[in-house]
Design a protein around this nucleic acid. Structure first.
Length: 93
DNA sequence: CTTCTGACA
DNA sequence: TGTCAGCA
């Protein structure tokens, strides 16, 4: 499938963590909890895309609201699905 | 860079 | 439960 530019991973975990103001260990935890799924290089190192950074910012927001990682996982899943549905809906009008 | 483990509020 | 530090 053709990938959108925003979905292309370019940042190493150290860079991504620096940008969003999070610890590297946290980013790995978020991935393990299913909140995120950054790309991987052939060597197995994570590559965070612009979309991933946006997602991390949202995680920080929801975290500040008092949601736990399980709740955030649900919210992100719903928001992603909603965005997809909206895109399809606007495509038909 | 990776995963895993333990300590702390 | 989430965060952070240290180790292999």
């Amino acid at each position: 499938m053709a990938e959108h530019p925003r979905a292309r991973g370019v940042y190493a975990i150290s860079v991504a963590a620096e940008i969003v103001g999070m610890g590297q260990q946290n980013l790995r935890l978020y991935e393990r909890k299913g909140l995120l799924e950054p790309g991987r290089t052939d060597g197995g190192t994570r590559r965070y895309s612009e979309d991933d950074l946006t997602r991390l910012h949202r995680i920080a927001e929801l975290l500040a609201l008092g949601l736990n990682l399980s709740g955030i996982r649900l919210v992100l899943a719903l928001e992603t699905e909603n965005a997809l549905l909206k895109a399809k809906l606007s495509h038909r009008t």
